[in-house]
Each structure stands twice: as structure tokens, then as C-alpha cells.
Write a protein that binds this DNA or RNA. Structure first.
Lengths: 351, 351
DNA sequence: AGGTAGTGTGGGAGCGCTCCCATCAGTGAT
DNA sequence: ATCACTGATGGGAGCGCTCCCACACTACCT
């Protein structure tokens, strides 16, 4: 009695009970209206809604979470050590997609960094405490224990960029295979015949798929694949430089390069320049990601755009579906879903 | 299954009460230990800690929030409409700083987008419901009502980039004035004498400060300020192009340009090129932000780096301090604090 | 000895919801 | 008129914490 007087009056946020009194109904009825239950008469619903509006009632999330055993929050886990990933537009664009799709819901977005060991430990506690209803995973390494932890805790999760063809988590990906194909086909259509490929890190699934696309595109065009024209970079500018140097050395007559990322393309460009090759006159160059670098490169870089914002949206859709599926006592639909979104070639003057 | 089998009951995560029973103490005592109260004997504390470890106890955030009327969460509000801001490293770097500083605490980070009207409305509800203990504001316009709303609701907030010299909110900023000075002094030391300045949007406080720095640096070097050498861009590439065109037209003999952002510098570069001016031979160019664009520009752009990650850290420090200050019944320290962090000139070949 | 402060400690009383069961009309069938 | 439903509603019983008051005890004073 005495206790709630202090903040009950001064802070004055209305409670369910107050709304109920105002509307002349019971607590349960207001709860039903708030949560959109159909088992309420129209008249009652209207009365409650009026009371809610008059009082400016906003549900208390903590109370709801406590009573209902759910949090209405999802976490976006960022494996921060990768500075590159974090600074790339990839992250921002995905975030934008996630945010826009989330704005239609009551869900809130938690950003969790899992770079350092301490952070990872904190994350494990977090998940163990079931402080979120679901998890979004981005750019996870093949050997990361996180996906298994999530599965074990039975926490709904969606991963962007599956770790392998047999990804067990629900996943969202762009069509790396198709994107690579379109890049190579583009170069072929420009009359290029000796097309090199600088691949990404070989144990990144997406990089493998791009390599597959490169090979198949050449094969389907009736040309063999010259393995001397394929060299791994590691998604870095330095890697791109190194690979380009090797390629130029092995096949001085190459007339096009398809790099597995814009950053590697930037590295390759430097080497080509230094070797006196003109772009695109002597060597055509195509990148991947369509990042800011591509637009600002000299000459502007042709690149494969991934629909990252849409991927973010798709992740939310899939995650919310999984959370909804799991609400009923027995989890039924156990098949995983995998979304693959189309890419788009953005032609510029480098090819 | 171990004795603490994850689903002993019906979802069975251990509660305070269970820990208390295990340790042979009362609920209140466990709570005291968990929250680090000094009023517990060493023996009891040890017993409780053992029980916590054995049971793998993790406090239930929702229950805590409900009982204590705090959330242990802060929000980072992003005025999303500005695509540019979002894609710039600025955001990622700040996020990294925020994240790293937060990892020492129990606070969780909520990302809230306030781009669309619907999102802003949701945000207002959010804040009204006191769903966060504090708010981080980034890149807020001078006429944004958000700061006032926060003040009115008495929600602790820290803004990065104060809106004016008389900012009422606690703020964190980089030394725009000093940064601009160092850029101009750098150009002067390189023997440039007719230094133009492309300013940012004039009602952005930081842009004003940069202009002040530009003027004072020239003045202190004993040179007058030729207002025909100052032209506003609006932080966009197109704005940079337009401003450069105007400047070149008015003062064809200019020999250096200090742009208020790298993006505007990129625009200026294009115009200079088209006008046949060589960089840096004919015209030296300096940007601001030291973004990816600066490194990848041709030639690489000299630019002023802001310690953005540190700014993120500083924001967290100030915000946590404010939240702590506000916990006691009566808020005492009402003076606002303003942190200003030093910038650094990164010299490259464009100057 | 009685009094007066401390220390630890236990546990009642909520915090504001959701869940669910009991209740109460109203309806149609018997 | 009685019974069995059905849809709508009220409200008790928690959810797992924090707060705070009451209650030992143990010093240390007069």
C-alpha cells in the first residue's frame, strides 16, 4: 500500500488493471483485447480500446515476459573479430533489411558481439538464460560451435550464408553459383576468352559455389577450365594482389579476371596497373558484392550485387516463422528451410 | 543427465529460491550475493556462490526488470533515412566502440531504427514505456524532437555530435575545429596559398566548427579569409561536384581544396579531373572522415580521422554514469557533460 | 545488569502481466 | 421447463525477482 504510492503516482504509467477499471471490465478481458484474442465481443473490445487510448496504456514488457515466458526479442549475433565484415556495407544493408522487416512487429532487436572469449561466454549465458526468442547468425565460420549450442538449447535460429550444402540450420543465402555464372557469361559475351578467377577462402561455402559457377559457365560455353587460371585469394586486398601476381605470371595472356570480391578486385587492379595492363582494354575486371569500392574504383568496377537487404528481410521472416512454430507445446515442423535469393550483375566500365 | 538436467520440471531453469534451498539460506540472502551487496558474511557468500555454480543459475532478466523497475538495456537509436550515414564506416566503428565498452557490463544493446514515421511512433511508445534505461543518439538533426522527448521523459541520453554549442544533452564529439585546423595547416605547410573549403550542411554544428577551424587556421597564419573560396556542399558527392564547379569558376587559381567530408572530396576530384587539374600537382585535396573511400581514391586521399570507436566508448561511459546518477531517488548532478576527442590527420598522396 | 547500536539474515509483499478455470448468460434441443 | 452446450467474461494463481521490515544475535556502551 505504502510502497507503490511513491512511484505509482509520480511515474504514473497505467497498468492493465487501471485500463480494466476504466473500461468497466475485468483484467482478463483487457489482456485478451491487447493480445488480439477473438473471444471478445465487439462492444467490449471498443470500450477497452477507448480506455487504452485515453490512458495511453503501453504494456509492460518485463511483466509480460515474466508471465508468458517469452521475451519478444531476437538477437543478431556478430562475430566481431572480422573487422572487414563489419565495415563492409554488407552489415549495414543486412541491418537495414532486418530493421525494416522488424518494424512491423513487436519484436525488438538485440545486437550481440561475439568476438572476444569473454563476449562469447556472455553470449552462452545469454542463450542459456533464454533471454531472446530467436537468433540471427551472420558470417559464421565452418568450425564455430555456436550453431550446435543453439540447436542443443532448442533456440530458433537462422544463419545467413550456410556453412555447407548440408546446413542444418534454417538459412538464407544469395545465389553465389548463379552470380558467378552471370559474371563469367558477361565476360564471355564481351569476347573474352582467357578468364581467370581469384577465389575466396576455399572453406567458405559461398566461395566454393562461386567457383562452381565459374567452372560451369565456362564448360557450358564449350570451353574447358584451365586450372592455371584459378588462384585463391583470401577475401583481402593483399590476397587479391598476391593471386593476381601469380596469375599474371602463369598466364600472361589472360584477358579477363573475375574476382570473388570487390576488395580482391581492388588488389588485382593494382597489380594489373603496375604490370602495365589497361582496364578494360587489355584485361576486363569483374568483382563481387557491388560495394562502395566498386563504384569508386578507377575505372568503376563491374560487380555482382547480392540482395543483402532482402536477405535480411528473409532472415526475419524465417526466424519469426520458426519462433511461431515452436510456441505450441510440441514442435512439429522440423524440416529446415533454405532461402536462396537471386543476384544481379551491375555492369560498369571495367569490363 | 546431470543432476541439474535442463528440463527437470517444465522448462526447469533454476530459480533464486532453488539456489537458496540448495545453499541452506533465504531468498533475500541469495539476492544479496547475486547483486554484490556487502552485507553478507563471507561464509554465506561462499555457500551461495557454490550453489549458484552447481545449479548453473542465471538470473531471470524479466523478473528482475519487473521487480526492480529497470531494464539493464540501452538503446542505440539510428535515424535510418540517411542511407549514407548507415553505410559509412562511421556507424560500424561507433558500434564497435559501443560494443566493446558494453561487454564489461550486464547491459544489453538494443538497436532501434527511427527512419519512417511508423518507426518513430514505435520508438516514442518504447520510450514512454521506459523499456530501456538509457539512449544513445547518433547523427541527430537540429530540429529533431527526439532529444526533447527524452528530456521530458527524464531518460538518460547521450548524443554523438552535439546539435549546437549549447547542447543540453550530454554529448560526445570529435574535435572538428582542431581537425579542420590541422588540415589547413597541413596544406599551408605544403606551400599552398589559395585554399578553398567545401563545407558540410551549414546547420550541422560539426560543419560549422570545421569552417571555424578553417578560417582561424588561415587567420593565424597571417592570411585573410577569402569568402569566395568557401562554398557549401551538403555532405553528398553531388554536392561536392557542384561546390567544386562553383569554386573553380570563381577562383580558377586555387591550389588546394579542403572538403568537409571524403564523399564531397570524391565529388570534387571528379570535377577537378574534368577541368584538367592534376592532383596533387595543380591542386591538393584533403578530405574528412578517413573513410574507405579515402584509401581507395586515386590518388589516395589525405583525410582527417576521427576517433570514432573511442567516441562510442566514451558515449557508453557517459551514459552509464548518467544512469547510475539517476538511480538514487533524487537526481543530483544535473550538469551536463561534454567530451571532445582529438582527431588525427592521415596524410596520403593527394596533398 | 539493562540499554543501544550495529550485523546478518529470513521472508512477506508486491511488480504487471498471462493462463486458465469458474461463472454466467444465451441458445437450441429435449 | 430442463439440460447441455457455447461464447464472453471475471479474477485467482502464479511467473522470479527486489525491497524492505522484522528478527535474532553480537558487541559495546552506561
Amino acid at each position: 500500500m505504502a510502497s507503490h504510492g511513491a512511484r505509482g503516482r509520480s511515474g504514473g504509467r497505467p497498468t492493465l488493471e487501471e485500463v480494466a477499471a476504466r473500461a468497466g471490465v475485468g483484467r482478463g478481458t483487457v489482456s485478451r483485447v491487447i493480445n488480439g484474442s477473438p473471444r471478445v465481443s465487439d462492444a467490449t473490445r471498443a470500450a477497452v480500446e477507448a480506455a487504452v487510448a485515453e490512458l495511453g496504456y503501453v504494456p509492460n514488457t518485463a511483466a509480460r515476459a515474466l508471465a508468458a515466458n517469452r521475451t519478444d526479442a531476437i538477437a543478431l549475433v556478430v562475430p566481431e573479430p572480422e573487422t572487414r565484415f563489419f565495415a563492409e556495407p554488407y552489415f549495414s544493408d543486412m541491418l537495414r533489411g532486418v530493421g525494416s522487416q522488424l518494424s512491423d512487429t513487436e519484436m525488438q532487436l538485440l545486437l550481440i558481439f561475439a568476438g572476444s572469449d569473454r563476449e562469447r561466454q556472455r553470449l552462452a549465458q545469454y542463450l542459456a538464460a533464454h533471454r531472446v526468442d530467436g537468433v540471427l547468425l551472420v558470417s559464421v565460420h565452418a568450425d564455430d560451435p555456436l550453431p550446435d549450442l543453439l540447436a542443443q538449447l532448442e533456440i530458433p535460429a537462422v544463419i545467413s550464408g550456410p556453412r555447407s550444402a548440408g546446413e542444418t540450420l534454417t538459412s538464407v543465402d544469395s545465389d553465389n553459383y548463379g552470380g558467378a555464372r552471370s559474371a563469367v557469361e558477361h565476360l564471355l559475351s564481351r569476347g573474352r576468352t582467357r578468364i581467370a578467377h581469384i577465389t575466396g577462402h576455399p572453406d567458405v561455402y559461398g566461395a566454393q559455389r562461386r567457383l562452381d559457377g565459374y567452372r560451369d559457365a565456362l564448360r557450358d560455353a564449350g570451353r574447358g577450365v584451365d586450372e592455371l587460371l584459378v588462384e585463391p585469394g583470401d577475401f583481402t586486398e593483399e590476397g587479391g594482389r598476391r593471386a593476381m601476381t601469380v596469375l599474371l605470371d602463369r598466364r600472361p595472356d589472360l584477358d579477363a579476371v573475375f574476382a570473388g570480391s570487390d576488395v580482391m578486385a581492388a588488389g588485382a587492379r593494382q597489380v594489373l596497373r603496375e604490370a602495365g595492363r589497361r582496364i578494360p582494354d587489355d584485361v576486363a575486371l569483374v568483382g563481387y558484392d557491388d560495394s562502395a569500392i566498386a563504384r569508386h574504383m578507377d575505372p568503376p568496377l563491374t560487380s555482382v550485387r547480392q540482395p543483402i537487404e532482402e536477405m535480411g528481410r528473409a532472415m526475419i521472416d524465417l526466424l519469426l516463422a520458426e519462433i511461431a512454430d515452436r510456441r505450441p507445446p510440441v514442435s512439429r515442423g522440423l524440416e529446415r528451410r533454405h532461402a536462396v535469393l537471386p543476384t544481379e550483375l551491375v555492369a560498369r566500365t571495367s569490363s
